[in-house]
Amino acid sequence: MTTSQAPLIPAPGDSRRRPLVVMRNVSKMFSSGTLALSDMSLTVEPGEFVSLLGPSGCGKSTALRIIAGLGDVSTGTIDWPSSRINSKGLPEGDISFVFQEPTLMPWQTVFGNVYLPLKLRGVSKSAARDEIMKTLATVGLQDFAGAYPRELSGGMKMRVSIARALVTRPKLLLMDEPFAALDEITRQKLNDDVLRLWRETGITVIFVTHSVFESAYLSNRIVVMKARPGRVHADFPLVTSMSRDAHYRTSEEYRQACEKVSNMLLEAIGGEEH
């Protein structure tokens, strides 16, 4: 997977390295009159793992959906400096989305669900088979290709959803609180899986969460957002000297990271006008 993916992802230090996505002064007003996002700017570089963290209603999911092209901006622009743009202004095949729910088609097997993005591009099933099985193997589901979603646990369904997002080898993976509904043990396991995939593939991730612990564990950059209207409160890198694994979870460094992120979040909530 790593070797075959290499040409698609610019290596760190690549001279052609340009930002992947640039949001400039984006605002979003819903038809109900609610200002969901106000003047949000965000530049994401290739290979980053960015968490959008904030209280509910701070517009983090809205921001993610706007980046994905699911909904228009009211004002502002979104640019994709390193992608080919299609007629809808979206980077052709460069983004994938993982929803809060697994969002699988219940009438399709695991294989059929992961095949979907390729099927929509007109790739034949036989041509896609190898890629699908390889992607399923990366999430540990190679033995479940023929299973139906109802036969899987919540965590396994989420893995299928991640495999479906990865099968097109996107540059950018958008994840909207993907593990919020899972139990703690499964969530930790999937966090480790996502980190491993991020390291192995060099993919860029924007991860929406309301969990301080999750964001501090996963990301190398955290964007803390504020509600009413949704806007960026703080944007800072999170560098650790340790590799992020079970050992890191119990380390002093992780505790400090959590404290820092937590304080930022408290600031953001405290600054809200009620």
């Binding site: 092209g69 699911l70 994938s96 929803f99 969002t103 088609m105 009438w107 399709q108 979907l116 929509l120």
Partner: peptide
């Protein structure tokens, strides 16, 4: 049809015809 699935098909640039054939018809079975 599940709105998230509709979003997903939109995201992958599915045509109207693909949306009908692969999502709406099976979903309404």
């Amino acid at each position: 049809v599940d709105h998230n699935l509709l979003n997903l098909f939109d995201l992958y640039g599915a045509s109207r015809w693909q949306m009908l054939l692969y999502l709406k018809l099976p979903s309404s079975l």
